[in-house]
């Protein structure tokens, strides 16, 4: 029997193509930023603790600028949308796994973001171009940091090599979605991205997984079960105490 009345704190959103495109980038940054922040207090060494927290901070800063560019309130967008209203690529919401998985994801995603932001600096949308000019500088650091770790892990011990190869193999089917055009920013060719990632993977003595069937759906709001759990943790306070301030 259907419930007669449901109260919800969720917002409804009139999505124009521009808003949808900005949300795709914003949600990518927020969800990956949240995942990276989960390492705080658990990273394998102090320097990495600082690094992952700093990268998370950059990503959440980018998300805030992108949400604001939609003309809507950033907090309402982050806290009061349900999983099916999120437009992030599925790869962002996958659980952190081990350190090799976290680094491999950051590497594959940053290599795509780096190209996207660099090209978006000349986008016709002035807000997107302004954010791109900030984000490309930050993303360069993220890519370099992740690439150095990928080489260290791949060309490290037998165990770190095995784990990193397993991470790349598991992540590869999620990389196709990163190149779906958003209709606002530049289109990035997967082949160009491969010219960034393939040499680093080779230098890490790892094998580039073969391109096969690719996961998709995040941009249309069809997510893995993991996003709901992530949002539950992220949104619990503003959902429980609407309008709470400190």
């Amino acid at each position: 029997m259907a419930p007669t009345s449901i109260t919800t704190t969720s917002i409804t959103l009139g999505e124009t193509p521009r808003i949808r495109a900005l949300l795709a980038r914003a949600d990518d940054a927020l969800v990956l930023g949240h995942r990276l922040s989960e390492w705080t207090g658990r990273a394998p060494l102090l320097e990495e603790e600082l690094a992952l927290a700093n990268i998370a901070l950059d990503l959440i800063g980018q998300a805030r600028a992108l949400y604001t560019a939609t003309g809507q309130d950033e907090d309402r967008l982050a806290y009061l949308r349900d999983a099916w209203q999120y437009r992030n690529a599925l790869v962002m919401e996958l659980p952190n796994g081990d350190f090799a998985f976290t680094i491999s994801r950051l590497f594959l995603v940053s290599a795509a973001s780096d190209r996207y932001w660099r090209a978006a600096m000349t986008a016709t949308d002035p807000d997107l171009a302004a954010i791109a000019a900030k984000a490309e500088k930050e993303t360069t650091y993220h890519l370099r940091h992740a690439a150095e770790w990928l080489i260290r892990l791949g060309d490290g011990t037998a165990d770190s090599h095995r784990r990193t190869q397993a991470a790349l193999d598991a992540l590869w089917p999620y990389t196709g979605e990163l190149f779906e055009p958003d209709g606002l920013g530049p289109e990035i060719a997967r082949a160009d991205w491969e010219t960034t990632v393939a040499p680093v993977i080779a230098r890490a003595t790892l094998a580039c997984p073969a391109d096969g069937w690719m996961q998709s759906g995040g941009r249309r709001g069809r997510h893995t079960e993991h996003l709901g759990h992530l949002l539950a943790e992220m949104q619990v306070l503003p959902r429980t105490y609407p309008g709470a301030t400190w």
């Binding site: 320097e47 690094a51 700093n54 990268i55 901070l57 940091h145």
Partner: peptide
């Protein structure tokens, strides 16, 4: 360089 990322976003160690 010890770390690309330092005590704040704008510094390295």
């Amino acid at each position: 360089q010890i770390s690309e990322f330092g005590s704040t976003a704008c510094k390295s160690l």
